[in-house]
Amino acid sequence: MSGIALSRLAQERKAWRKDHPFGFVAVPTKNPDGTMNLMNWECAIPGKKGTPWEGGLFKLRMLFKDDYPSSPPKCKFEPPLFHPNVYPSGTVCLSILEEDKDWRPAITIKQILLGIQELLNEPNIQDPAQAEAYTIYCQNRVEYEKRVRAQAKKFAPS
């Protein structure tokens, strides 16, 4: 494992614990031996107030490669969400998460999670990743928002 990646992720964890947006979660997972795995984080993004996503808490896994922060983490909703920019596998399609697009090593975990929260309610229809959600979003916004509200209710924190 890269010392650069681990040191950056340790800084990220410290900064997150000191200050993070209300309702968001970002925690490194534990290895079988109980030690912390900084390369694999369990996160959760709350649906934004005043949107059909409100009330939901959407679980996301963030996986970092050894060359982080040169390369972005892979962000994957578990379980996958109904959304035009979420692949059926759950992987998020967002330009700041793509090395050859808008990724920059200075982007923080907090910025990534806030960017994904923004994307939930403002899909990028130029870059669809899920045919069904994309089609319904474009053709029947009322039905799309109904499905999103049902999903938010399903993923409401207990």
Results as ranks from 00 to 15, higher is better:
residue 115 G to A: 06
residue 140 N to V: 01
residue 68 Y to R: 03
residue 104 R to D: 06
residue 135 T to C: 15
residue 74 K to C: 15
residue 115 G to K: 00
residue 5 A to E: 11
residue 111 Q to N: 14
residue 113 L to Q: 06
residue 117 Q to V: 06
residue 107 I to V: 14
residue 69 P to V: 05
residue 52 P to Y: 11
residue 151 Q to D: 03
residue 76 K to S: 15
residue 114 L to E: 11
residue 106 A to W: 01
residue 48 K to F: 11
residue 130 Q to D: 02
residue 35 T to R: 02
residue 41 W to V: 05
residue 40 N to C: 05
residue 38 L to M: 06
residue 49 K to Q: 10
residue 50 G to W: 05
residue 77 F to K: 02
residue 59 K to I: 09
residue 63 L to T: 08
residue 42 E to N: 05
residue 85 N to K: 03
residue 26 A to G: 09
residue 72 P to S: 10
residue 60 L to T: 09
residue 129 A to L: 00
residue 9 L to S: 00
residue 75 C to S: 13
residue 21 P to M: 06
residue 48 K to C: 06
residue 33 D to T: 04
residue 113 L to I: 12
residue 10 A to N: 14
residue 97 L to H: 11
residue 13 R to K: 04
residue 128 P to N: 03
residue 93 C to E: 06
residue 69 P to R: 00
residue 154 K to P: 01
residue 73 P to D: 00
residue 52 P to M: 10
residue 106 A to C: 10
residue 27 V to F: 03
residue 110 K to D: 07
residue 87 Y to M: 08
residue 105 P to M: 09
residue 138 C to W: 08
residue 141 R to G: 09
residue 142 V to P: 13
residue 129 A to Q: 04
residue 71 S to Q: 12
residue 134 Y to H: 05
residue 63 L to G: 13
residue 148 V to A: 10
residue 35 T to C: 01
residue 101 K to F: 11
residue 84 P to V: 15
residue 110 K to E: 06
residue 2 S to G: 15
residue 130 Q to K: 04
residue 6 L to F: 10
residue 93 C to G: 03
residue 133 A to R: 04
residue 125 I to Q: 07
residue 41 W to G: 01
residue 148 V to M: 02
residue 130 Q to R: 11
residue 83 H to C: 03
residue 87 Y to I: 08
residue 97 L to Q: 05
residue 113 L to H: 03
residue 129 A to P: 03
residue 103 W to G: 02
residue 50 G to I: 05
residue 112 I to G: 06
residue 22 F to N: 04
residue 27 V to Y: 10
residue 93 C to N: 03
residue 96 I to K: 04
residue 29 T to L: 15
residue 101 K to Q: 09
residue 138 C to F: 05
residue 22 F to T: 01
residue 48 K to N: 10
residue 96 I to D: 11
residue 25 V to W: 07
residue 70 S to W: 09
residue 92 V to R: 02
residue 64 F to K: 03
residue 129 A to R: 02
residue 93 C to S: 00
residue 43 C to P: 08
residue 70 S to Y: 12
residue 29 T to M: 11
residue 43 C to T: 15
residue 6 L to S: 07
residue 64 F to P: 06
residue 19 D to L: 04
residue 80 P to Q: 09
residue 9 L to K: 08
residue 7 S to F: 02
residue 90 G to M: 10
